[in-house]
């Protein structure tokens, strides 16, 4: 948060100084940046937050030992969460459901949308594996009652069952359901629900900070020419085009 406000304050200063577009040289810019103080502990916490949220449990453990940064969550729970996520990503949805229920039975009992999406993913996997009979039976027995309860679910169910109607599923209008991205989508939904149940944010903070950086730069572009960061992975300052 603090980094964001520093940028904002600088923006305000610049706005006060210049009415027309001002040019700031790399030298001036770097001097300004040097005046900004970032605490090391804050950086470490951001890194830890990223590792924990993304589920890099071993890296988090190592990082904890090396940097002395305490994670805000029991690292053991990350392992469980990652196992669930991985199971969905591999298409073992039933296994994932069992694991979530072991972790906390309230999650799926109080989150009908997530429960439906997991069941839908199960159906998709059955269809993918060519188990037509079983897929039909599963759709009728497990999914149809959910569709009766909720209009949106019914539409999604119809879309999914439509997969059975096509000979060449890879080339049909609902083929995207068989895509790996569908698994990833479901996996990230489960991941988010587990994190929420653990009172943890479902997104890491680092990407938000970078988003704010880009937004602030865009705002600044209207007022000044300055060394901009265009490549986020190198974070290199690029000379202003004058």
């Amino acid at each position: 948060m603090s980094l964001f406000w520093i940028v904002i304050r600088q923006l305000a200063e610049i706005e006060a100084m210049a009415t027309s577009k001002k040019v700031i040289t790399r030298e001036e810019w770097e001097k300004k940046l040097n005046d900004v103080k970032i605490r090391k502990e804050d950086m470490n916490k951001l890194v830890m937050n990223f590792l924990v949220t993304e589920g890099y449990v071993e890296a988090a453990e190592k990082f904890r030992m090396e940097s002395g940064t305490e994670p805000d969550i029991d690292l053991a729970t990350i392992t469980d969460r990652m196992a669930v996520k991985k199971a969905v990503q591999c298409g073992n949805v039933e296994d994932a459901i069992e694991k979530v229920n072991d972790l906390n039975p309230e999650i799926l009992d109080t989150n009908p949308q997530l429960f439906f999406h997991l069941q839908q993913q199960r159906l998709i996997e059955l269809i993918r594996n060519g188990k037509v009979e079983e897929a039909l039976e599963f759709a009728q027995e497990e999914l149809a009652p959910r569709g009766e309860e909720n209009q949106t679910f019914l539409e999604e169910l119809e879309r999914t069952v439509a997969l059975l109607a096509f000979e060449d599923v890879s080339n049909c209008p609902v083929g995207d359901l068989l895509d790996i991205s569908q698994r990833l989508k479901t996996a990230s939904e489960v991941n988010a629900a587990i994190l929420t149940s653990q009172s943890h944010e479902k997104d890491p903070k680092l990407p938000s900070l970078l988003k704010m950086l880009i937004w602030a730069q865009n705002q600044l572009d209207e007022k000044a020419a300055y060394p901009r960061i265009n490549n986020l992975s190198t974070a290199a300052l690029e000379d202003p085009a004058v």
Binding site: I97, E98, N101, P105, L108, D109, N111, P112, F115, E142, P145, E149
Partner: peptide
């Protein structure tokens, strides 16, 4: 017991 639990969670029917 576990099987029963996994059957009924989230499933009103």
């Amino acid at each position: 017991l576990r099987e029963l639990k996994n059957q009924i969670i989230g499933n009103r029917t």
